[in-house]
Nucleic acid binder design. Sequence first.
DNA 1: ACCACATCTGACAACGTTGTCCAGACCTCG
DNA 2: CGAGGTCTGGACAACGTTGTCAGATGTGGT
Lengths: 353, 353
Amino acid sequence: MPHTARTAASRQNGGRYGTRPTMKDVAAQAGVGLKTVSRVVNGEAGVSSDTERRVQEAITALGFRRNDSARVLRKGSTASIGLVLEDLADPFYSPLSRAVEEIARAHGALLINGSSAEDPERERELALALCARRVDGLIIVPASDDHRYLEPEIAAGVATVFVDRPPGRIDADMVLSDSANGAREGVTHLIAHGHRRIGFIGDHPRIHTARERLRGYREAMADAGLPSPDSWMALGGTDPERVRADAARMLAGPEPVTALFAGNNRVTVTLVRVLAEIAEREHPVALVGFDDFELADLLSPPVTVVAQDPAELGRSAAELLFRRLDGADDPPRRVTRPTRLVTRGSGEVPPPA
Amino acid sequence: MPHTARTAASRQNGGRYGTRPTMKDVAAQAGVGLKTVSRVVNGEAGVSSDTERRVQEAITALGFRRNDSARVLRKGSTASIGLVLEDLADPFYSPLSRAVEEIARAHGALLINGSSAEDPERERELALALCARRVDGLIIVPASDDHRYLEPEIAAGVATVFVDRPPGRIDADMVLSDSANGAREGVTHLIAHGHRRIGFIGDHPRIHTARERLRGYREAMADAGLPSPDSWMALGGTDPERVRADAARMLAGPEPVTALFAGNNRVTVTLVRVLAEIAEREHPVALVGFDDFELADLLSPPVTVVAQDPAELGRSAAELLFRRLDGADDPPRRVTRPTRLVTRGSGEVPPPA
DNA sequence: ACCACATCTGACAACGTTGTCCAGACCTCG
DNA sequence: CGAGGTCTGGACAACGTTGTCAGATGTGGT
């Protein structure tokens, strides 16, 4: 075992720590021209097998690795794409990210990704940093509602696809779930099970999907001839404390809601906790959540959800992106993917008699 | 609203679709020298405010964005780090990834990441591709057990930190959880609650953490003077069907195990399902899982786990990496983080009388 | 012996940026 | 009014690769 990897390996390197051999060095070592090395490295034809062998040996001896920065500069394409989303660690977005990665890999591209943390300025910084790196394409889960800052980039040829939420003030490809209809279906389901007072707790209305889901809720209530007073709607974000307070408020008073609709997975999980805590004291409250989540079926009661398929969103977006990179230049398209109501129990709890 | 973003923006560009303005173009537009533009773009001193203004206007007019590829080539540092892990979508790794991203961001670096899918060859390809891109540093969750392929890279100055599992056949920085002691503690906990026949279901023994956890299990059994026959140990990976079959086998027969220890979060979740399915027919089986997971506390019974903190692993690894990038060159260090037994119920189920 | 042709190889410019170095304009002070 | 300094701006080389093109060598046909 070497003393340290660093010293051990730098011995191979003649001790030139931090200096990498270039094709020129390889050429000198092999006694051939620079371009011949380039040909060998890129598997181009027209190199005799004897020369190729000599070059390969020199490459191994020096530990040469092609500098892709220089290659990118010369060739103009980076074989990498950027993904900007809200939070890489969110169980909704991580499958999306993974799906994008798989498609990218299939196209020989690397994935650079960053979390915007729902901050428009941070989204912008990230997206522009990725453009400066000359990513070939960009997939964005918007935090901002104005993407005009991307116009020069798109004009310069950076293929751009928006996913989960639409772009703001520019026309571009997008892949969305049908939030409004999904929410409407979920709320209608609660109404069908006898509920008349239903609360909606969702994310900030500046987020497109949150607005759409709220709209679906309102439409479902209106369609059933039910009121939906402001006190039954909370749009304060997904902070657990905030959600708890909102839920407590809706569940208190003389006319408490008998069912809750959660606007996304974060809210659903918090509400599951809240309802579990009060389960022993009160009549059970029905719950339907937007977004599926792991183990939803093992809770008691199992949680009924309006499911979307985040991996499928990612796949669609990435495929659309690579279609563009392959040269498709038809007008921007909007892909809408349906949601699916998964009934498991919590959404079928009847209201108190 | 523009007809399409592409055509709208390319109008700004004089219609030169796919061609980006360079500093030279900006210089010509502003009527200054090339280097002056560079100075403005980089906020260097020595440019009069009048000249600066003219340059800024030219930049905006042309939609110029610095080409970081060229910059990287000239400067030698990419301000980006690579992360290779098993699966970006795994709820254990996604917080790790996010934590690395945050630290990278704090140091002004971008994160390029890829999933090895537990395939050594894929890990190698990814890591070397990242090195070819000249990432400043590399964080790796190994799938391979031989990392000598990285020696030339490390010698050339690519800081490298291994996380969650140790490197193979090279000496390098690493950040690990204390898997063996964690598993021992978990199994000892089951023994303390009266269990004598305890099964272990874990990942492939080629994975270091899987071996360590198995070792912890064996030591705990041996310390208590209990046997641990092969039939109580399954190391076939995390495929749900496989895990189900293994569990079924251990729970059948005249001397079934009365408790199960799960080697990671994937296995735990599958076992939760299995135990839920048989809960009504048989005496409840105790369960302790390695890795915490969301909603573990809301299942019935709530799941006792040996918790590690993946975000903390990621943070530690990234901090170690940036310490190296800042020039620290003390010998490679091994950081071990303790695990924490979280008792919730499933691990305190007694054996049948 | 000679030419036509194919095969192999290398010199050179270019990609877009930054570091070095020098020139000129302008100021200050003796 | 000149010497010395400061500020501003630009010419040029270099980073490591790839595309172009032309030169060198070898082979076969006449």
